[in-house]
Every structure is written in structure tokens, then in C-alpha cells.
Simulated scan of single mutants.
Amino acid sequence: MRTLIVEDEMLLALQLEHEVESSGYRVIGLASDESEAIALVEREQPEFAFVDIHLRDGPTGIDIGRYLASRGIPFVFVSGNLKRIPADFAGALGAIEKPYSANGLQNALLYLRAVLSGEDLPPPPSSLTIFQ
């Protein structure tokens, strides 16, 4: 699956990229602010995204989430402060709270793969907050 990572902390972005690629997903790009994210969406047409809320240009992750949702691209927020997610979830499938463990992220990726492929869903892992 073609995956976009929107994260302004480079070490976290690279760690997430490694974990995502280890799970068989293809990372099509890393963005650290809103303009980079939108340019990558337009150019690379991702099928899924991980989006931090607070980026290099401020709390623009919510706007990026709304943009992804308007394009029909599923995503999850990855944030150290899940309280900043709006009541309508900005169209996100869920959220992964930082700091996360490699095992927790792998479990979340397995669950998300099931969601996106239409498989029967196991219970969501504790590392992933699901929005209904």
C-alpha cells in the first residue's frame, strides 16, 4: 500500500517509515508541513497516511487530515496529544498515541490492513484508538 508519512520530527518519521516498510507497505514520501504534504498527495496519490497533528508550520495536521478525507484517502493521526483531535475526528480512522512501541505500531498496522482490505476485524489493538 502506498503510504504517506506526515511528521516534522525527522527521527520519528524515519522510525515510522522503517516500521511501515517492514510491514510490507511502501512509503511514497515524508512531509514535515502542510504544503509538502499536499504536494506529495497531488504528485504521488497515496492510498493511506499517518499524520501528526503539530507540524513544522503549526497544528496543521488537522487541515491535512480534512484534505485527505475530502480526497477519500484513509489516514490515522499519530500524536502525543490526542485531546487536540476535533470531535468529528477530521475524517480519521483512528489515532496512535506517541510515544508508541514498535510492537504496538505493528499491531496497529495489522489491524489497519484488515480494515482497509475489508477482512473480518479482530478486536483493535490497545495501541490504536478507533473512531466510530
Rank of each mutant, 00 (worst) to 15 (best):
M1P: 04
T3G: 02
L4M: 15
V6W: 09
V6Q: 11
D8N: 08
D8W: 09
D8K: 02
L12K: 04
L12A: 12
A13Y: 02
Q15H: 07
Q15R: 11
E17K: 14
H18W: 04
V20L: 00
V20S: 00
S22E: 09
G24R: 04
G24F: 02
R26T: 13
L30A: 11
A31G: 08
S32F: 10
D33W: 01
E34S: 04
E34W: 07
S35Q: 14
E36L: 13
A37Q: 10
A37N: 15
A39K: 06
V41R: 08
R43H: 06
E44W: 03
E44A: 09
E44L: 05
P46R: 11
E47M: 08
A49C: 10
V51Q: 00
V51W: 08
D52K: 02
I53M: 07
D57A: 07
G58H: 07
T60M: 00
I62M: 06
I62A: 09
I62H: 14
I64V: 12
R66W: 13
Y67N: 13
Y67E: 14
L68P: 00
A69I: 11
R71G: 08
R71P: 06
R71L: 07
P74G: 07
V76T: 03
F77D: 00
F77R: 01
S79W: 05
S79T: 12
G80C: 03
L82Q: 15
K83I: 10
R84G: 02
I85H: 10
P86G: 12
P86K: 08
P86L: 05
A87G: 07
A90H: 03
A90G: 08
G91T: 14
G91N: 10
L93P: 12
G94L: 01
G94N: 14
I96A: 02
E97Y: 10
Y100W: 15
S101I: 00
A102V: 13
G104D: 04
L105A: 00
Q106S: 12
N107G: 12
A108M: 13
A108P: 03
L109G: 06
Y111L: 09
Y111K: 10
A114P: 13
L116P: 09
E119D: 15
L121T: 11
L121W: 01
P122D: 15
P123M: 07
P123W: 12
P125N: 10
P125H: 07
P125I: 11
S127K: 11
L128K: 03
L128V: 07
L128C: 00
I130L: 15
F131M: 14
F131D: 14
